[in-house]
Design a protein around this nucleic acid. Sequence first.
RNA 1: GCGCGAGUAGCUUAGUCGGCUGGAGCACCCGGCUGAUAACCGGGAGGUCGCAGGUUCAAGUCCUGCCUCGCGCACCA
Length: 1066
Amino acid sequence: MGRVSPKGAGFKSCSHLAGFMVAPKPTDELDSVALETGLLKTWSEEEVFENSVQNRADGEPFIFLEGPPTANGKPGIHHVVARTFKDLVCRWKTMEGYFVERKGGWDTHGLPVEIEVQKRLDLMSNEAIEAFGMEEFNKECRDSVWTYEAAWREMTERMAYWCDLDEPYVTLHDNYIESGWWALKQMFEKDLLYRGYKVLPYCPQTGTSYSSHEVALGYKEVEEPSVYIKFKLEDSDASILAWTTTPWTLPGNVGLAVGPDVEYIRVRVTSEPENWDGHGGAEIGEELILAKDLFKEVIRHHCEEVETLLGSDLVGRSYEPLFPGAIERGDSKTAWTVIEADWVTTTDGTGVVHTAVMYGEDDYNLGMEVGLPAQHTVDINGAFLKGTHPALDGRYVKDCDATIIELLHDTGLLYREKMYTHDYPHCWRTGHPLLYYAMDSWFVRMTAVKDRLLEFNSQVEWAPDWVGEGRFGEWLRNVKDWAISRERYWGTPLPVWICTKCEHQHCVGSREELAAMAAEGSPVADDLHRPFVDDTILSCPECNSDMKREPFVMDCWFDSGCASFAQWHHPFGEEGKFENNFPVDYICEGVDQTRGWFYTLLAVSTTVFDSICYKRCLSLGLILDAEGKKMSKSKGNIVDPWDHFNREGADATRWYMVTAGAPWNPLKFDPNGVRETYGKMFLTLWNIHRFHADYAALDGFDPDTSPKGKETPLDKWILSRLNQVIAATHAQFESWDFHKACRGIEDFIVNDVSNWYVRRSRRRLWDEAASEDKLSCQHTLHKILVTVSRLIAPVSPFMADVIHRNLEGESVHLANWPEDGTVDEGIIEAMGLVRELAETGRRIRVDNDRRQRLPCSEGWIVSGPDLSSFHDILAEELNVETISLEKDLDRFQSEVVHPNRRSLGAKCRQDLPAVLAGIADGDSESMLASIEAGNLVIAGYEITAEDIEIRRVERVGFAAETIQSSDGSSVSLVLDMSDTPELLSKGLARDITRRVQAARKDLNLAIEEQIKLEVWTKDAPELFESDLQWIIDETRASNAEFLVGEGSGESFEVDGATVWYSVSAL
RNA sequence: GCGCGAGUAGCUUAGUCGGCUGGAGCACCCGGCUGAUAACCGGGAGGUCGCAGGUUCAAGUCCUGCCUCGCGCACCA
């Protein structure tokens, strides 16, 4: 035999070949971490990222917009997932020839930053912050923002997320803020910005209102007094009963809401109750009104019904205020009357909702709608305002429950009190109950542009589409005005100034405008943050008086919503930059951004530019732990991406994330899955590469100059498969099915290339001479590896590049996306069949108790397509001496008629079972004859050739099996099970060789090393001379002895024979 | 309460227009192959396709209801 494998000393001696430009270099065992970190250095030295972008500067732009993360939190595995999907699309598009710039970004404002600083400096209230000093506080915030920047940069670089981190956009930069101001001014001038109230969960201790997210952190179950209050109607003796769990809101009561279609009942108390808990009560003869459904639950007295009435009958009736003087009527016509509201239900309470405008969202909206007075009875510190009631003024509202109950009891207005258990939001920092409290706020009138939002949304290509139509669409259809201001310190200041005299409002749209409008002697803010802007006094364009800034900062979502233009400092920055990059082609973030960034981008672009902002949006599913639980710090189930970067590497981590499921489905992140991906995909790919590179290096193979050789059917097959994979990958990338594309590639690499093509080609490369066959194999392997590395480069950029560089001499990231070529479907089908037959052969051997190494003299293929070009492969796989075609089917098989249910079902419908039974009972041979003659009728239906399939079933007693192919045809394999002395000898020789090779491996012998071999056989078949020589050649036994009789050393048994063998190095 | 999504072997999953014996991988057991491989091949065991109805000749697939999980929205007067 020829040369074996080029490992060990042999391959070192040829390292001089590495000098060839494109001749592949031999490779080592895979160390993915070293491979990746080493490559990172190369990339940075060669500026591969910059070059990959600039090389396509003439190409059509593909515009990507990076959603800015906050760097005051540690990056986690979910960030790696998002960045993988961002990166892979950008890399793929770049390879397709698009010009894909990627500017990084940082979100740097907002409450989370403030909270971090507050915690660290123990500044748990607004007073504390102001005592500490706003300027100093904001400086702390500004620094805190970058706490984890280094960690982010390391993660970003290590995972190979290519993105310009050196010139990112940063929301705290004055240029960015200025663009935001400009945008807000556009809204202001379109009359889309206004000032109003918003009811928010508010903590008077910290002086902070909370987002719903933070509220969710602090729900606690509490037991509190709830009260039923009698509201005395003015035009009758009756009272309406209303219920509340927040007695402190009662002084603010200005209305009672009823459901217009709800049935109410008016009852008269007829006698005292039998027992009574707590305060309250009613006189005999007193009349009460409440929902009919709740009457039994609420009323504790014996009563008689006076009348039944609908809510609409009550609407407009006036009642006496509980706390006269606490609220001024002003010009309200509806104050202290019954109002209708369709959201009123009879699930609890009395079916009448006590309405305090400033302390409930529904209350506030209703109050605005019908014109109730919007006045506070509680100050910003949570204490009752002066003038509410002498017993309450100045006291913290939550301490007043008992007092209020007593006051109402004393005036006879309390019907009942009842302890009530419910979940109520508490401040997650101080543990105090939150108050729903109407806060002064600025709004963007999103309701005015709802139709445009919906229209633009329909133009966005969403992946998956149901997020766009469903979740996001639903959000837009229910769009509310955007409360855009926050009573905070660290953020983009709201650029609205109000005249202290005439109340004229002015929105500043640039630094220049700020300077031009500054009042004489006023400082002009140099830094656009608080407190500096607060000090800038403008001169009122209407009356020349001083204007003061509204003391708010903006919702930090507004900042990131401006990213598409503020990143370019539009309209003050480089001309054309924005226009050429808007709207963007692609954004990608977690699905939690639906109401966040996905929304604010569209909200801003709609209100400012009357345009969509992004054309395609990939919404990623949540990342869960391996058990499907949400990852959270408290559960301790956070996965640190570095665990994997440092073990399996970033390639495997990224590939796992992409192939584990559809990007929009929740990803159960399983560390074992990464391990599996590494072992299966990357080790295999690496070893294919190693196999090729080692021989190519040894042979001085050069893809450009080495002769092409002669393609074998095996080569043709794998190249057809390759083209198939290229086409499928492309189509699936286009349709966002990255997971399917990558699973397809992985299957190709592992199954087709490694486990079949390379396995079947191994001996082709052992040929020392530059045979046609070897050359073709090398060109084919080269083509496969280069193409595959390009296909996987967007997802796993490291190994792809190492392979590509070794084979092509240049980075894969500068290469073009592969184009597919012709696919020979026939050869693919044929090879599929060959592989199936090889597996079938092994099954036959198991069934017939014949070991694989013992050859069979003959195998027959019965029917099926022409596989003659693969007969050599098949013979080797099956370990048979010859393969023949058998035409005489009847020798091994009989034909059996099988129903085609699809065809028969359409024809026979409900009679199908009868027909099926008829076919099952019938004699196949005669049925076939009848079909041929066109006269087979079963259960009244004529059965034609389309209605059946003919399956071949092997006759009893043959070592054979039949496989059905998808088109209904069948192929059978028959093996000759007879033994001859020649076959027994060959089989035994193979068994011995196998054992000796294992022993060689155990001894760690180099391939070319010779051995001394001794073999003893007992009760064994005779070993022929040719087989003895074969053993000697295969095992490189320059000194071999074969003896009959009992021996010593290692032994094994095979088919009743015992073999001893001894192997030693020479 | 409303909306969206999911539920297939111990785990991860494929399953197209309703049709033929519901496929893979991991892990387990038996056997085999193997000097690129941490792989591979054959066999075994493991499935009430969440539950219950319905449509149909035929349902993992379509319809209805319910259960569980996740996400979002609303509510918590």
